[in-house]
Each structure stands twice: as structure tokens, then as C-alpha cells.
């Protein structure tokens, strides 16, 4: 995908240019001032905050590192543990999401298998039966094995010659992507109960699994459009040269789709880094992440802006750097899969 930036063909009149600069300049100020404020507040002493706003370091007030020392040294592990949690959970879940998402997207965009609707419904029926069985106290191993066995028997026997409408790949893809509309809060109570039963509450793995599940539809949505742009001819000639499916995937498709994979990774990473709701339910002390720490500290240290500013800067620093890269990708239409859908 050639990513040459193009501006609109019409050059603005001088008046138009001035108005444009005024509006954009105003918004730039509105965006940057709070960030500037955040940075200088992190170096202020309490007295410089409580006696009304002070604006310029060295002129208005003498910068101090006291808040940084307190947050990083005095609080030490209380800050570093959530930070490490956020990094580990963010990176791990994003890598896993990308792997699963790329696999599914590739499978759905290159293989043309179709499943009979009747078969899918049959499978669903046995899955529900198995779930009901588990609810009624059946051991889950037995329920799953029984359900699968019954499904295989029914599939091999009665349904072998049954016709009816088929489900295509487009249906599966649409079905996966449609999950993106589901707000986590609508399903968070069952997920909480699930992890509670598994004894995984307040652990990093629980957060990782939950984030992978939550972000997977987004990954599929973003990658689907990208895989379409890879010319099929390349894969065909590799197949003729004797490469098998796995080699084609590893040697040709993945390297070619690297920009799309990077952009998707960054997007998902930002989502995982900032995620609040699921973390609020699934973690408390051990697995606490930065968004939770910031919100919790705001409740207890509300007016101690100097401490809060340091915490927030630590948290948003890494993603601001990512924003610059991401903006290029999105603006050039790399992440626009569903728009044309």
C-alpha cells in the first residue's frame, strides 16, 4: 500500500487560511495546555498549587522533584507493581490478540469452507445441553465429552445428507466482528463469576485472557481489510513452487502484512493499556493496573495534584509516543476495514 499523503486539491484563499489557522490554533491550545499544565504541576510544591495558578517554571515558581521522589521512591512498589502489571498485561494480551486475530482473519479470507446452517445449529444445541448439564451439577469434563460425542454421532448419522442453507466465511467474519458492539459491562458479571470459580480473580492471566477476548473482534475487523490488499498471485506462485500452506503463511503473508500487523498491534495495545472496566472487576491489589491506580489515588489524594500529575505522566508517556505512529497509519486508511464493509 503506497502511503503517500495527499491534501485537498483546492488551495485556501488567504482569508480561509487565516480562519483555518485560528480554529486549529485554538484547538491545539485546548489540547496542549492541559498537558503542559500536567507537566509543570508535577514539578510544583504544594504551596505553588494551593495559592492559585502559577504558570511558568523558574519565573513563577521554583521546580522541585519532591513529588517524583515520593511516587517513585517513597511509594516504591505501590507504584511500580501496577506499572509492571500494566506493561506485562498490555504486551502479552496484545501479542496473543494479534496472533489469534491474524490466524482467524487469514483463515477466513483465504479458505472457502462452508458449513451447513443445520450443522451449526445442531452443534449449538448440544453446546446448550452441555451447559445446562454443567449447571445441574454434571462434571464439566463429562458434559463436554458427552456433548461432543453426541454431536459427532448425530452429524455422522442423521444429518449426513441434510441440505439447507450454508454459512459462508463472510457470515463467520461478520459474526466475529459484530462482537465489537457489545459493551463489556453487559457481560462483566458472568465473567467475574467465571474467574471467581476458576480462582483466577486478581491475577494477571485473568486480565490477559479477558483482554484477548475483548480485543479479538477489533483485531479481526482491522486486519480483514489489510489481508485483502495482499495479492493472491504471490501466494499462488509460491504454492506452485511447492511451498505448503504453513510456509506460505510464514514466508509470504506475514512479512507482507507487517505494516498492518504493527498498526493493529499498536491500536490494541493502547486499548489494553488504558482499559479500566474489566480491570476494575477482575483485579484488586496484586494485579492492579495503572488506570485503576490513578482513579483510586484520585479518590484518596484528590487535591494533591503534584502527586497525581506524576502518576498520570508516568502512565500517558508511553502512549503519547505511540499516538504519533498510530495517527499516520489510521489517517492513511490502513485501519478502515469496516467503513467499506
Amino acid at each position: 500500500m503506497a502511503l503517500r499523503w495527499r491534501t485537498s486539491p483546492t488551495t485556501p484563499t488567504p482569508l480561509g487560511a487565516i480562519i483555518s489557522y485560528l480554529i486549529l490554533g485554538f484547538w491545539t491550545f485546548v489540547v496542549l495546555f492541559p498537558l503542559y499544565w500536567l507537566v509543570i504541576t508535577a514539578f510544583k510544591l504544594p504551596v505553588h498549587v494551593n495559592e492559585g495558578p502559577t504558570y511558568i517554571p523558574f519565573a513563577d515558581f521554583q521546580p522541585s522533584l519532591h513529588a517524583w521522589r515520593y511516587i517513585l521512591v517513597d511509594l516504591g512498589n505501590d507504584t511500580l507493581r501496577p506499572y509492571l502489571n500494566t506493561v506485562v498485561v498490555g504486551v502479552t494480551s496484545s501479542i496473543l490478540t494479534l496472533m489469534f486475530g491474524a490466524a482467524a482473519t487469514y483463515g477466513l479470507s483465504r479458505f472457502t469452507y462452508r458449513v451447513r446452517l443445520a450443522t451449526a445449529l445442531l452443534f449449538l444445541g448440544f453446546a446448550v445441553l452441555a451447559a445446562v448439564g454443567i449447571q445441574l451439577g454434571l462434571p464439566w469434563q463429562l458434559a463436554v465429552a458427552g456433548g461432543l460425542g453426541a454431536f459427532a454421532l448425530a452429524r455422522a448419522g442423521a444429518l449426513r445428507r441434510v441440505g439447507g442453507p450454508r454459512l459462508g466465511n463472510a457470515d463467520i467474519a461478520f459474526w466475529m466482528i459484530s462482537q465489537r458492539m457489545l459493551p463489556p459491562v453487559a457481560i462483566v458479571i458472568p465473567i467475574y463469576i467465571l474467574f471467581q470459580r476458576l480462582g483466577m480473580l486478581d491475577t494477571r492471566p485473568a486480565l490477559v485472557v479477558a483482554y484477548v477476548a475483548a480485543n479479538l473482534p477489533i483485531a479481526v475487523w482491522l486486519l480483514r481489510d489489510y489481508f485483502r490488499t495482499i495479492p493472491l498471485e504471490l501466494e499462488e506462485s509460491a504454492a506452485i513452487d511447492g511451498a505448503n500452506r504453513y510456509q506460505i503463511l510464514w514466508r509470504i503473508v506475514l512479512p507482507l502484512s507487517l505494516p498492518g500487523l504493527v498498526a493493529t498491534f499498536l491500536f490494541i495495545f493502547v486499548l489494553a493499556w488504558n482499559e479500566y472496566l474489566l480491570a476494575l472487576f477482575l483485579s484488586s491489589a496484586k494485579a492492579q493496573t495503572m488506570p485503576l491506580l490513578v482513579a483510586a489515588q484520585n479518590a484518596t489524594r484528590g487535591p494533591q495534584w503534584w502527586y497525581m500529575s506524576v502518576l498520570i505522566l508516568l502512565m500517558i508517556g508511553p502512549v503519547i509516543a505511540l499516538a504519533i505512529v498510530l495517527e499516520r497509519y489510521i489517517a492513511r486508511g490502513l485501519l478502515l476495514g469496516a467503513v467499506r464493509g
Binding site: L24, W27, T28, V31, L32, P34, W37, L38, T41, V270, W273, N274, Y276, M290, P291, L292, V294, A295, N298, G302, W305, M308, S309, I312, M315, I316, V319, I320, L322, A323, I324, L326, E327, I330, A331
Partner: peptide, 21 residues
């Protein structure tokens, strides 16, 4: 362009805290 996009990647919790300020 970069400036307009930047706040989108910031954590909602963090954004809320500094707007409370």
C-alpha cells in the same frame, strides 16, 4: 494532525483526573 489525535490514546481515567484539576 498529531495534536488533534493525541488525546484519543490517553487513558480515560487519567484524562478525567487532570480535568478535575
Amino acid at each position: 494532525r498529531g495534536v488533534v489525535f493525541a488525546p484519543y490514546v490517553l487513558s480515560g481515567a487519567a484524562v478525567a483526573v487532570f480535568w478535575v484539576n
